[in-house]
Amino acid sequence: MTEPVLEVKKLCKSFGALVANKDVSFDLREGEIHALIGPNGAGKSTLIKQIAGGMTPDSGQVFFLGQDVTNVRTAQRARMGLARTFQVSALAMEYTVLQNVVLGALGARGDVFRFLKPALKDKELLGIAYEALERVGLEDSAAKITAEISHGQRRELEVAVALTLRPKAFLMDEPMAGLGTSSSKGLTRFLDNLRAQAPILLVEHDMDAVFSLADRISVLVYGELIITGTADEIRADREVRHAYLGEEEET
């Protein structure tokens, strides 16, 4: 078996008396979409932050590409190839769509300390930026101000910025949040193809998307990972149905 791209080992994090994550272990392998689901307050966001680098765990480790990155800072993890998208779009709102993707390409190239050459005339950066925009279908909106495009387009832009990093793994925090049915179906198809490029750790509330996309699903309840399995295994598991899916199946 090949080494997992991303591996989380016995991660623990508490805030005072509140245990947000307790001994969470799982991995993300080449070519897969691994979905992380769980009710609100289960500790998914805390977990994502520790994987992306914004938060240090109390104990446990995070391995990325075989390296222990537990104490590596966010920017460095991104440079290693860990691309994150946010639940609430994290974009430079005053910038044009193009400027946002060029910023991503710039970060990936790593030579940010250039003071005179105009960044938006850099052919290499523009090439990467437009390629990413075309893949998500935003090339026609390149000149629009980010604050003025639709919510759905911003979700797509968020993915486009992640693409400019040419990442080794994607970390996607609710990419479907707030999308209408047709947009979320479009994004589902897109992510389906994306896994060939790099594996995706997907945190998502949209169960249709999760069950149609995920190769494996992990369920987080009260900070603990209760099961990891295929979509069918998760559906069949009684504990999961009780803790999480139960209410949904009855409706």
Partner: peptide, 15 residues
């Protein structure tokens, strides 16, 4: 200027 608008964004592209 990007970092002024959104620090998290700039950090997560590796800067």
């Amino acid at each position: 200027n990007g970092a002024r608008q959104n620090t998290e964004r700039v950090l997560t592209v590796g800067i």
